[in-house]
Write a protein that binds this DNA or RNA. Structure first.
Lengths: 146, 146
DNA sequence: GTGTTTGCAAAGTGTTTGCAATTTA
DNA sequence: TAAATTGCAAACACTTTGCAAACAC
């Protein structure tokens, strides 16, 4: 069965995903394992709950949309994912949680990473009294040439 | 009547608001005038449709929520407002459409301006082929010290 | 066995839309 | 009076929730 094939990506065998979930205090259930495999195997990605749900169904993984939402939030809470705000109508989740920024394609709604060393954000202002900086997000909004 | 008092802010008398709307091709209706006054008189602000609707009601301005949404989008289309994406569950509109960035207070959902000269965003990466940069948004997310 | 997780359907929230009535030019 | 605008209620898209059944340890 597809679910038991842990050798697709030799860098992250099945047992690693189990360990990864365990280490953040999440039980490695069938649904969480399958979603983690979709999310973390292969290249970094930017995805919405709806899209991940469709991908799961295409991969014959039975999981409800509610569980996809719950799982995305749980993964975000424990730092496996990062939520990105670019579009007020949808939540995007990013499997790359290193320091980086984004191109946002207004027309398609797609995102692309900008590695941290490709941009300089310098001379940050002091955060308002009583607060501290949690994160700095740079979004470069691009549109297609006409 | 409150609506006819154009002298609250001497810098933008009533007739200016009318002209401002006309010049962007929007008929100066009662609703648009009243919302424009709430939005553009006084200091720059960051507001959601829901909040503006409540403000309007508090000011005894009869306007439906649908019209508030329509008006905010029309004002955005003609460049009187800018939409800011910081929270995937709500749309924020900014009456300051000069070049600037934002602090976002995660807990309260409030926004504060960061003037353009208070931050350096340098060495922007090339936009992907076939696209051009429409805007660069920097959001500094802050949380309260514990 | 005990506590956790899941799926479902229902409810919730923010937003948009269709259309008749009203207003503007 | 012709065209634009409004308000209402219904529809919508996305997301969360309550709770019984299924599962993990």
């Amino acid at each position: 069965m597809a679910l038991m094939n842990s050798e697709t990506n030799p860098k992250r065998p099945f047992s690693d995903v189990i360990e990864r979930l365990r280490s953040v205090g999440l039980r490695p259930t069938r649904q969480r394992l399958a979603l983690a495999k979709l999310l973390f195997e292969g290249v970094d990605r930017h995805i919405t709950a709806e899209k991940l749900h469709i991908e799961a169904q295409e991969a014959s993984i039975r999981v409800s949309l509610a569980t996809v939402y719950n799982t995305l939030h749980q993964f975000t809470d424990v730092g496996l994912l990062r939520e990105i705000a670019v579009d007020s109508s949808r939540s995007y989740f990013d499997t790359n949680n290193s320091d980086h920024h984004h191109f946002f394609f207004e027309e398609s709604g797609d995102l692309a990473d900008i590695e941290d060393d490709q941009i300089d954000v310098a001379r940050l202002p002091e955060p308002p009294a009583g607060t501290h900086i949690e994160r700095v997000d740079v979004v470069i909004r691009v549109i297609e040439d006409k």
